[in-house]
């Protein structure tokens, strides 16, 4: 799911004068923050992330890779480890709650969790990792799975910052 998020960040749209970058931060209470400095969600992006069928249709219709439809499809992989996922882009934020009916596609308007100023980015995704075993894997593997070779095929991202917000 980390690679899906990174791939989505690489597919995003960035301002001409921006150096595309992403931040991944793990906090000891099981919150995982993923952010990037893209231009921000469009209406089509919100639709794509809320409705996997629609994004599949868009993908097939456009018949090309790197379109916004992929944002919705890859994004759903976060629910492998997260029950609740917040999205923030520009000045708006909402969450998905997997434990409710249609919760993975039904957005609820809500405040984004607080993170330090230096981690704030224009578009952010926050995962609440429920199981302690999943938290342990994420905490330990974060810097191990993200090797330089993982980024060979990225086209836009020039920097990925990994932060652990815990006692270590």
């Amino acid at each position: 799911f980390l690679f899906e998020l990174i791939q989505n960040a690489d597919d995003n749209t960035y301002a001409d004068d921006a150096q595309p970058e992403a931040t991944i931060a793990y906090r000891s209470d099981g919150l995982l923050l993923f952010g990037c400095n893209e231009q921000g969600f469009s209406k089509a992006n919100v639709s794509a992330i809320c409705d996997i069928n629609q994004s599949t249709k868009t993908l097939l219709k456009q018949g090309k890779k790197g379109c916004i439809g992929e944002k919705g499809i890859g994004f759903k992989s976060v629910f492998k480890i997260a029950d609740k996922v917040w999205i923030a882009s520009n000045n708006f934020s909402f969450y998905f709650d997997k434990t409710t009916p249609l919760g993975m596609v039904d957005p609820v308007w809500a405040k984004f969790p607080d993170f330090p100023e230096q981690l704030q980015m224009n578009t952010m995704i926050c995962l609440k990792i429920e199981k302690q075993e999943d938290r342990d894997v994420v905490r330990e593997q974060l810097t191990k799975v993200l090797e330089p070779s993982s980024f060979m095929f990225l086209r836009r991202l020039t920097k990925v910052r990994v932060v652990r917000l815990d006692d270590f």
Binding site: Q39, G40, F41, S42, K43, V46, S47, C50, D51, S89, N90, N91, F92, F94, L102, V105, D106, P107, W109
Partner: peptide, 20 residues
């Protein structure tokens, strides 16, 4: 880009389309 009001309205529409 999308404003807060536009996003709120769009999210309302999405929820309605899901029958929420």
């Amino acid at each position: 880009s999308l404003s807060v009001e536009e996003c709120q309205a769009h999210i309302r529409d999405i929820r309605h389309s899901h029958g929420a």
